[in-house]
Design a protein around this nucleic acid. Structure first.
Lengths: 207, 207
DNA sequence: TGACAAATCAATCATACGTATGATTTATAC
DNA sequence: GTATAAATCATACGTATGATTGATTTGTCA
């Protein structure tokens, strides 16, 4: 029998991913996990702290792998900068390994989507973001800072959405996110980063 | 003095966008709008119906404009298919006009993100999605269906995230979404659609 | 075995939620 | 000006929420 703490973490991960953070109650969690309500506050402290632990448990090894890959790619590319494809590969692909738990992938997408990620990221893995941001800046030194930041946002959004997609969205729905899909995203976003933006395109669309 | 119904719609739009649907209470709305609690159920019927109305009020003209543009581009391109750049332009750019209300842009992003959009879309603008999906399929006839669907997801995710970005995400944050940024997204996603995916890239990343 | 800490438990706290009701006010039409 | 409908109001319903308490069980080491 697994210990209570793990059961809470597993169930919270699943429900936060399925329903979102705000829409998931502690009672929903404990009834599914078969534990006592007070156990959550005993082992964690608050709903917010529980969320932090749920995320950190899985994200820490992911970020570790991300930085390892970035280190490796930087070493291989030295003294030049790493190309954007490799940077995005190092950022995106490690998310998919997370011990084959699709529950967690959904959660990652949700948290991004609910706007809770910036806060958690700032508290817990600000350094990693900075490293990747710097790498991207070096990979695309000619791109204006603002344009670059927006491309990062586009990529984060695409990734979050990939992770949180429900099985049925359109009539014929795509499969669950997989390594193949993640590679497709790497290609998609890399190509997006390399897209030339037309500075003349400031025209209105209305009327 | 604006009528109660509009005040509710405006405030709900703003708060749903800022805090998300689940995290926004009706009391939060009425206190900000300065109206009575019962007014919501009188003019709408439920929180869910309020959300539907908030969305439909703004999305209907957007979808109208989307279809107009797609019609126009299809006429111009006839008898050939419309290129992916034009299709995405027709889909993305009309979102930005919504009478210059950044509140609503955030809401659109949120709703996508909270996973409420598929349900609303299925109920209210399924046709429009079908038309664009068909157009995309014709623009990229050689692309496998599944790959194509995922690219659509990537684009929706990038758009949703663009719309819902908070002013402060990184240390130096990008500006609010604008026409310029939307054009950048059109370029980003178009380029992504055209990216060649390497079918050999099925290799693992772990260990 | 006995002492002490770690963990679990049922029960309850105050508050907030979406919804509903019935009275009251305001506007519209005759 | 009175009747009828539309709109707003204060109030309350029943339930759910996150959090806390103090008693009780379980495990650990002397």
């Amino acid at each position: 029998m697994i210990d209570t703490k793990s059961k809470i973490l597993d169930t919270a991960e699943s429900l936060f991913g399925k329903c979102g953070y705000a829409a998931t109650s502690l009672r929903h969690i404990i009834s599914e996990a078969g534990v006592n309500l007070a156990a959550i506050h005993y082992h964690f402290g608050s709903k917010q702290d529980l969320l932090d632990q749920v995320i950190l448990r899985k994200v820490r090894p992911i970020n570790k792998r991300r930085l390892e890959l970035l280190d490796q790619f930087e070493a291989e590319a030295a003294p030049g900068p790493v190309c954007i494809e490799k940077i995005l590969e190092a950022f995106i692909m490690p998310v998919m390994l997370s011990d084959r738990s699709p529950e967690f992938l959904k959660l990652m997408g949700r948290i991004h989507a609910e706007g809770l990620m910036p806060e958690i990221a700032r508290r817990h893995f600000h350094l990693m973001m900075e490293r990747f941001f710097t790498a991207i800046r070096q990979a695309m030194p000619e791109m204006p800072q603002e344009e670059l930041e927006w491309n990062v946002h586009f990529t984060l959004g695409a990734m979050a959405h990939m992770l949180s997609v429900q099985p049925v969205v359109f009539a014929e729905s795509p499969s669950k996110p997989s390594f193949k899909v993640a590679w497709q995203l790497v290609a998609f976003a890399s190509s997006g980063f390399r897209a030339a933006t037309d500075p003349e395109k400031e025209i209105e669309v209305n009327r």
